[in-house]
Structures are given as C-alpha cells and as structure tokens.
Write a protein that binds this DNA or RNA. Structure first.
Length: 632
RNA sequence: CAGGGUGUAGCUCAGCUUGGUAGAGCGUCUGGUUUGGGUCCAGAAGGCCGGAGGUUCAAAUCCUCUCACCCUGACCA
C-alpha cells in the first residue's frame, strides 16, 4: 500500500447480497412492454411502471444510472463545465419573454400552488439558467461560462412509449454555455467543440456503439446542431451516412448530392396518354390508391399542403397563404427543406377542414390545385418534376389527385395539365401565384427526405446508406435567442452592450440506459458493458447455506471490492436453473460460480456474460485477477 | 389530437356472445422431494372484476357516463 497522502481514497467497490436488495425478476414481462429494453429492464427488475411514461428506478437501474451520470460528470468537468442543481419547479413568469410555454403547448406539465400561481415542471431549463446568469454576472470578464445539471425533466408527451425511451418523466444532463463571441478563445464554437468531444468521450466510456449526425436545431432555434445516436435497428430515428466522406445526418436534415438534370429538362415530355379520371372511393392513402389502380407509389405524385403562419399584418395584406409541396408517392416531404426553399420559416401542415374550405380537396390534391390561386406557392421536387423518364426512355406515367373527393387522375402530364410552360407560367396572367404578393409561384428543388441510395452531398460518386438510431445526446448553438428575449447582456471591452451568446447541450441519461439495452442484449437478457453495469461481478452460490462456500464468496468479493469492482452475491436459496436464468437476465458482465464441481479442483467457474456457452474453471487463487483482467 | 384496442389475483390471461355473486398458469407461503440451466407432489393465502350510475329478483357479463392504460398515425430541444 502506498503511504502517499491523497485527498480522497481510491474507490472501493460495493458488495451486496441479492437476498438483501430488491431485484424482482419475472418470467414474463408486462403486457404493454414491446421493445427489448422495456421488456428486459422490466423482467430483470430494473424498472417498474408507475403511470404512463413514469417509472420507478429500482436498485439495479439506479446503480447503472449513477454510473452513466458519473462518467458524464467527469467528462463535463474535464471539459470545463461546472455542475449545479436547479429546481424542477419553473415559475410561469419565466416564459413571459421567451413564450416557450406556447411553443411547448400541452407538452408542458403545469402545476398551481395554493395561491393560484402557476408553474411548470421543467421540460428543460434555458429560462431558469438565463435568469440565474442574468442576475449573477456583471462583466464580460466572467465569460465564458458552462454550467450543467443532472436532473429529472418533465414533458407531458402525447404518447409516451417504449418504456424508458420516451417518457414523461426522465433523467437528463443539460448544460448551458455563455459567451461574448462565437469565434475564438472563449467563444461559443470553442465550447461547442469541447462539448462535442466530451460527448464522444462519455458515450465511448459507456461502451456504446454510436454515430454523430448533423441535425435540425428544431423549435429551440439556433444554428448548428449535432445528435448522438446509439446505433440500433429498433431506433426511432433514421440516419443517413456517406461511407466515403463520413458525412452523417438525421433524415430530417440530410442533404442530397447533385443529380443529373433530366435530359429534356424539367416538365418537358409528351403525355403518356389522355388524362383519365378514376373513381377511387375509400382511398385515403397513397398505398390504397396504388392497390386499387395497380400502380406503384413511384408513379404517384403526392401533394402536401402547408399553411403559412402569418402575422395579423401580413394576413391583412396577403390573406391566408399556402405552400403546396409535390413529391413522388414513394418519397416523404421534408418540412425543413420546404421552409428553406420557400423562405418561409413559420409553416405548419394545413388543417384539413380549413384547407377544404380554401378549395383544396385534401387527400386528392394534385399540383393543378395551385394553379391560378393567389397566395399559393408550388414547390416541386426534382424527382417529381419530370415528364420524360430518361431511365425508361419513355414518357413518364403519373397518377395524381383528381382535386375532388374520391377521384384520382391517370396520365397526368405537367405541361398539358398545368400550363404550356410550367416553369415560365408565372409570366401568364391567369397563373399568377406566389407568396407575399410576389409572382414566383413555382420552384423546382429538393423538397423530400433523403433516402438510402441517394447521391452523397459530400463525395461525388458515393451513395448514402441508411441506418436507425436512438438519440441520446443533442448539442445546439443557440446564439442569442434566449439572451435577447430575456435581456441577458454584458458590457464588452468597448463598453458596448452585447447580448450573451449561448449554447445548450443535452444527454438523456435514463434513455441512454435503455438505448444501451436495445443495443446490447440477447435472447436470455441484458448484456451490460462493464463501465455502466450495475455490478461488475456476480458470484453465484450453488449452495448458499454451505458456510465454506459463503466464506469463499466473501473472500473473493472483498478482493474484488478492494480493487474497485462492484460485486453482487447471489445467496438466494433457489435452484441453479433459476439463478443462472436470472444471472443472464440482469446481465452482469462476469459470473463466478461457486459449487462443488469446481471446488473439487480448487477452482471456481468463470463466465463472461457476452461469451456464449459454458464457463471455464479458474483456480481460486487466480479468480480475482481473471475478473479484473476481463473488466479492464 | 384522430382511429383502433384493453382494464378480472403480484404477473400473463380465460370467463362476458346466451346475466345466477370468480377461474387457470406463473409467482408467493407451508410441508415433503429434488439439487449445475426457470424440479416434482400435496396444501394454503390472495380479487369491491378500473370507477360511477342505470336495467334486473339477480350484473364481471346488458346499457349510459367516466377514468386509466396500450397500439397506429399526427406530434416531438
């Protein structure tokens, strides 16, 4: 032992008896559990549902959550951030300036005190921290600053699902940084990059297989944004990657590389036949129409109507305006790209009833619906704006809406049915459209989500591949959105008042635990990576009432604990089968089995959870070292 | 929010159509048996049938209303 003075002693591992803690494993999962993490965390006695999207974290789960949290803490602190702890309780007045209670809408849990004052249960803490910093720093010399907390968050999700993956109450690490400048030393970019590295380190240390992708910054606003996705086929998010350049993006953000323009030009080509109206009752979706008409979705034109959200002034001047986005039937409209192309940042899907009133036969809208309507912008995706199919060498056959209920049309042709020269049609008096009084009524561009097989936007000749992921981290450059709204400013060196520039950085701690299970399990149970396993070693006693066996277990656990390993001793009076099944279920990385068979050879059985098959005999004297080597 | 579905024992479910006061398996407890991959046998405890109202001599079952939960979609720092 070293005699050197240290400020804190090295961590000693925990040793717990299974019979003296709470690990209620079950043979069957609750009926509402469907995803692997939900099923396994429930069956293995980690979580128990209290209400929709609200869970107890039992001792095993809490141990894992603390380990995840501590890894994050170490990396955050190493990256120059300081931990604090803010209340769950957020007075509604805090949203007066940012109006985020409106943006969040029903997602915000609200409470009222006995005096009738309203408050929210914090879904995130930009307002709280901005208030705090506003009242605590008085000079630019106190910047940059990076503060974080690990705490429970509340969001009244419309539909909580998949156990811990989408909860109404969950544990999150949220960090906020404050800067005078974007660039340079002490600037936002520096902190953003440091957080990026801290996140990569944290998730690596947790043993996760993950991808960092470019992301939409979403309603929180701001410029750059990256998401950290655990790679997992059951993930809710679709990501696209370019194998040669390393570019990766969320499908909501992913750009599509350059593609050759059609040889004859957009919209140019003869009709595939006379326009034919077909009765298509009870066909609300593309798939239904395709089935009925026996056509493939890629021969359909899908028209999606967006409403432009205007200020009262604009409404007064231009009336209610719409954007009609047209993509191929097998493609999905990308709202972000619609916003970019139309240069309208505040749009939303049109309300069907309202749209029908405005003359759009929702469900049966074709591009023709935009023609001749004032205040309607037609956006056509490149893949939809064709009349001649270069690949097939013939006219493009299109089916689209009939612009009246229960009707579609076959052999739609852009030039014939929309106007002689759709691109130049805004020159024609009767086709006048466009937004804000302009006359640019039609734009061809990227309007759809990228797909696997699309050209990479970063490497010519490469194509994108798709994968699924679970978002566990998200970093944003916020800019001055909150500081402007709430008046957080400092005087700079030149005594000029400057809005403080902010960044925010989140990690879903409880979701990370669940994502890890999604990523790492087999038919028998969870397989924890050692750094976040609730215990490192499980000592399974075949005969817990044999004093010699228990003494050996105690000796081994003491050795392991003094080396920093956490040990769980299964001392239950259960049959071996039950113990082994439970061991596999809870997924402790190493199992040491103490039983007569091995003891006859002065050995114990060593088995790594991730290695299939039977374990190996290891001499008692070598057992501790064998475990520590396997955990390293 | 729209559409669909489910609430009966700690868990998984049957019973409901055709009303007669509640069942199975797993788990729990007792006793025995067994002892290296969810033993076997015997016994026991455990339910205001989500809640409220109604119909009826009688309601888990039929009717009305409500609440909760789940699924698909919409939505989602």
């Amino acid at each position: 032992m070293s005699t050197a003075t240290t400020l804190s002693s090295p961590r000693r591992g925990d040793t717990h008896l299974w019979s003296r803690t709470l690990i209620p494993t079950t043979r069957e999962a609750p009926a509402d559990a469907e995803t692997p993490s939900h099923i396994l965390l429930s069956r293995a006695g980690f979580i128990r549902k209290v209400a929709a999207g609200v869970y107890d974290y039992l001792p095993l789960a809490w141990r894992t959550l603390k380990k995840v949290s501590n890894i994050i803490r170490e990396e955050m602190d190493a990256a120059g951030a300081s931990e604090l702890f803010m209340p769950v309780f957020v007075p509604m007045e805090f949203y007066n300036e940012t109006k985020r209670h409106e943006a969040y809408g029903p997602l915000l849990f609200q409470v009222e005190d006995r005096k009738g004052n309203k408050a929210a249960l914090g879904p995130t803490h930009e307002e709280t921290i901005t208030e705090l910093v506003k009242g605590s720093i008085t000079s630019y010399k106190q910047l940059p600053l990076n503060l974080y907390q690990i705490q429970t968050k509340f969001r009244d999700e419309a539909r909580p699902r998949a156990g811990l993956l989408r909860c109404r109450e969950f544990i999150m690490k949220d960090a906020y940084s404050f800067h005078l400048e974007v660039e340079g030393k002490g600037g936002l970019n520096e902190a953003y990059d440091a957080m990026y590295r801290a996140y990569v380190n944290s998730f690596k240390r947790c043993g996760l297989d993950f991808t960092v992708v470019e992301a939409e910054s979403g309603p929180i606003g701001g410029s750059a944004s990256h998401e950290f996705m655990v790679n997992c086929d059951s993930g809710e998010d679709t990501i696209l990657k370019c194998p040669s350049s390393g570019y990766a993006a969320n499908v909501e953000k992913c750009e599509i590389g350059a593609r050759p323009a059609p040889s004859k030009g957009y919209f140019v080509g003869d009709p595939s036949g006379p326009l034919e109206e077909v009765h298509t009752p009870n066909c609300p979706g593309i798939e239904d129409v395709c089935k009925l008409l026996k056509v493939k979705p890629q021969h359909m034109l899908k028209s999606v109507l967006f409403k432009v959200n205007s200020t009262p002034d604009q409404l007064d001047k231009y009336g209610q305006e719409y954007i009609l986005a047209v993509v191929r039937g097998d493609h999905d409209v990308n709202e972000g790209k619609v916003k970019a192309l139309s240069q309208c940042t505040d749009i939303s899907l049109a309300d069907p009833a309202e749209a029908i009133k405005a003359g759009f036969a929702i469900g049966f809208v074709s591009p023709r619906a935009a023609v001749g309507k004032k205040g309607v912008l037609l956006l056509v995706d490149r893949d939809a704006a064709l009349s001649f199919d270069d690949a097939a060498g013939k006219s493009k056959f299109w089916v689209t809406g009939g612009d009246k209920k229960d009707y579609h049309v076959k052999h739609f042709n852009w030039q014939r049915d929309l106007g002689k020269d759709p691109l130049g049609a805004n020159a024609q008096g009767d086709n006048k459209g466009g937004l804000r009084g302009g006359d640019n009524y039609l734009i061809v561009g990227d309007v759809r989500n990228a797909l696997a097989g699309d050209p990479s936007p970063r490497a010519a000749g490469s194509t994108l591949v798709a994968a699924r992921g679970i978002e566990v981290g998200h970093i944003f450059k916020l800019g001055t959105k909150y500081s402007d709204a709430m008046g957080l400013s400092v005087l700079d060196h030149d005594q000029k008042k400057r809005s403080v520039i902010m960044g925010c950085y989140g990690i879903g701690v409880s979701r990370t635990m669940a994502a890890c299970v999604e990523m790492s399990h087999d038919a028998d149970g969870i397989i924890w990576p050692a750094p976040i396993a609730p215990y490192h070693v499980l000592i399974t006693l075949m005969k817990p009432d044999n004093a010699d066996h228990m003494a050996l277990a105690t000796k081994l656990s003491a050795e392991l604990a003094s080396a920093g390993a956490d040990v769980l001793i299964d001392d239950r009076d259960e049959r071996p089968g039950v113990k082994f099944k439970d061991a596999d279920l809870i997924g402790i990385p190493i199992r040491l089995t103490i039983g007569d068979k091995a003891l006859a050879e002065n050995a114990v059985e060593f088995k790594a959870r991730k290695t299939p098959g039977k374990g190996e005999l290891v001499a008692i004297t070598a057992a501790t070292q064998r475990c520590l080597a396997a955990l390293a």
